[in-house]
Design a protein around this nucleic acid. Structure first.
Lengths: 203, 203
DNA sequence: GATCCTCTTGACTGATCATTCAACTCGGCG
DNA sequence: CGCCGAGTTGAATGATCAGTCAAGAGGATC
């Protein structure tokens, strides 16, 4: 059913996803992509007008993959909406762990790297962030009255994103998971205090 | 007393600080730096062995500038230790505001951009983060029993850094201060709940 | 004014960059 | 078979990259 035989354009996009995540956009040359995809420059420029259009396609695939590739595996067997948030953070922790704190969130890296992003690039980066934040916000909504009624759920979801991105940034810089874990622990403490102040708390 | 007449090496470093902050390290060419500093390549390579050594010097200056250039202005007239933390965050907000959400924290951008940083570069990035976190931690210590005794102050300070860096990242991507403000508001709510649970709380 | 040394000048190098293009392969179709 | 067009090949292009170097400027010291 899946993975028939990837055609050249797909191989190029997959290689670019990997390389942009590892080395960033600017530090990945077209030659790097072609080597990794085992393709020729003519094939790339037959499928994409410029290197930036490859980036646009990569960001589109990241966006399309948020549910099936990120949320679904992270939430397998986790039904509690609050635990789903921490399972999502745990997913990034695992990614840092298996790459020795080298690979983090490609969207975050690209968001800070692309300094004058052409409109389509910035919009796709924003769309990726929005989808992530909305997924967390949906968990907060699903938590119902376990949280105080007056919390800004969107704002809280944006805080969760900051905890993840800031934790990844610090983990990569220190080559250690400690600061990532500390940020998540502080967030968990905050959630504990929110739930303790909620109307529907379990006694 | 200050700013006698900057010599060529200083002009190069200042230009590099500005350009690395605006466009990143990889996207700033040596020619860009030379143009901005009104210098010749020979002068740069007389003062620095490689472009990366310019980056090292830039990071050193950022480190040396944390207290006089960042903390001191942010804390002018602010004595309350908790308010000092939010004054520091406000400093970054102001920076985003006057640059139309374009310029954020150069250390954070460089930390995510430099993917295989040579040891001295990564250590200087880490030292910058550490100094920032320790400054916030010192505020938390100064807050004394206004916070619960069992809070992990280092971890909380790392959360504050994540809120700043994550907020900057989202603000730049959305070209809007909303998510930055929402993250700070959530952090303030957390601080409120911590202070409400503290032994020395004012009734 | 001769010598010395630090700093500057700017043309130059070779590598690498994104991109182009004319020539080619090959399955489908009349 | 002949032709077509989508896809591929890889050498070539000119721009730009980080870094080099021989020549000199200018001040200090004797």
């Amino acid at each position: 059913m899946s993975a028939p035989i990837p055609n050249t354009a797909d191989r190029i996009v997959f290689a670019a996803m990997e390389l942009f995540g590892e080395k960033g956009y600017g530090s990945t040359s077209v030659a790097d992509i072609l080597r990794a995809a085992d393709a020729n420059s003519g094939s790339l420029y037959h499928a994409f007008p410029t290197k930036q259009d490859v980036l646009v396609e990569v960001l589109r695939r990241y966006f399309d993959g948020i549910l099936p590739m990120l949320l679904a595996p992270a939430w397998e067997g986790v039904t509690d909406p609050v635990e789903r948030i921490f399972a999502l953070l745990g997913r990034y922790r695992g990614l840092l762990e298996i790459t020795d704190c080298t690979y983090g969130c490609p969207i975050g890296s690209l968001a800070l790297e692309i300094h004058e992003p052409d409109p389509p690039v910035r919009e796709l980066l924003a769309a990726n962030f929005d989808a992530w934040v909305m997924a967390v916000e949906a968990c907060l909504d699903a938590a119902g009255d376990r949280l105080p009624a007056d919390v800004d759920r969107r704002g809280l979801a944006q805080l969760v994103l900051s905890v993840m991105e800031g934790g990844v940034m610090q983990a990569r810089t220190h080559r250690s998971l400690d600061s990532f874990d500390a940020g998540v622990a502080a967030l968990r403490d905050y959630f504990g205090r929110l739930q303790a102040a909620a109307p529907g708390r379990n006694p």
